[in-house]
Design a protein around this nucleic acid. Sequence first.
DNA 1: ATATATAAGATATTTTTAGTCTTATATCGA
DNA 2: TCGATATAAGACTAAAAATATCTTATATAT
Lengths: 154, 154
Amino acid sequence: MRLTRAGEYGIRCVQHLARHGKGTLVSRKEIAVRTDVPPHFLAKIAQQLARAGIIEIQQGANGGYRLLRDPSGITLLAVIEAIIGEISLNDCVGRPESCHNSPLCTVHLIWNKANQQLRATLQEADFATLAKEESCCLTPFPETAGHKEPIGKK
Amino acid sequence: MRLTRAGEYGIRCVQHLARHGKGTLVSRKEIAVRTDVPPHFLAKIAQQLARAGIIEIQQGANGGYRLLRDPSGITLLAVIEAIIGEISLNDCVGRPESCHNSPLCTVHLIWNKANQQLRATLQEADFATLAKEESCCLTPFPETAGHKEPIGKK
DNA sequence: ATATATAAGATATTTTTAGTCTTATATCGA
DNA sequence: TCGATATAAGACTAAAAATATCTTATATAT
Ligand code: SF4
Ligand code: SF4
């Protein structure tokens, strides 16, 4: 019941790009360092974002990534689902046929409602708004950003 | 971003008990067969429900499980969180200290909001209401319930 | 006492997540 | 044109979590 790291990383990537604005080329390395994401992992995530039409990848020397759309036209939901697929809080939400009971199931209805509500909330959040204030993943002192401490251990 | 099977099974178990009403003893085997849950797995889940004060386990011959509270006083949220712990859609929701950026992060605020909304929705659903109509996991013909077909394979 | 049913926790299997590595390709600039 | 740099694509590995089972112990009804 939790977003994967890949999803979280995808959001960080887009948010960093959003701060530079639509069309600005930013190197993978800069994004990786500033958002604390393993560079090779970021490459994979970027490919998914590119396939979803959110970013464009420029190869070669001085390559990098750029936003294809205006930040105001990119929602949190779009980015997340580009990475992890359509959100489905319970198996039967996305695939009702996975449970023979779903046509009669009152719990199923609750899950459908909750799922739709969650997706709506994430759809309301666009990256123009999100980037307005200083936010996600701006490491205060880039030169000292060791980014090797594990992000979260209990 | 999905409920675990253990969580789903826990709901089925409580719902089955709810149909029998508070205090009625139902054997683990009956619950397992009728809700299509592996018996040993159910045992584990039941222990978690017992620790959470939702059911009581009766040992020994003719033992089984019974609801401790009235179905109307048991919410979907309570059952789910008894099994999988408190819902946290992103790591930083439950443990803000896991990301040094959380105090400034606008995305973090969205997750907090979405999380609270989801929990509220699941809290509104109580098992008296859920059990009113025929619902979750009532196999139409118990005697033919082979329950060995895998519940969901793509 | 014996049969029955669950307790509790160890163990095993499978799936998913997370991350890395390798080889190929594209682009820039000397 | 060539070499350095940067990403592409996908194979591969490692770690973690989910799912399920097994084993031994304990409780209870008869
Ligand atoms: S029993 Fe209901 S809630 Fe559970 S998987 Fe089936 S349809 Fe979904
Ligand atoms: S960057 Fe923001 S949303 Fe992402 S983990 Fe940190 S606080 Fe949460």
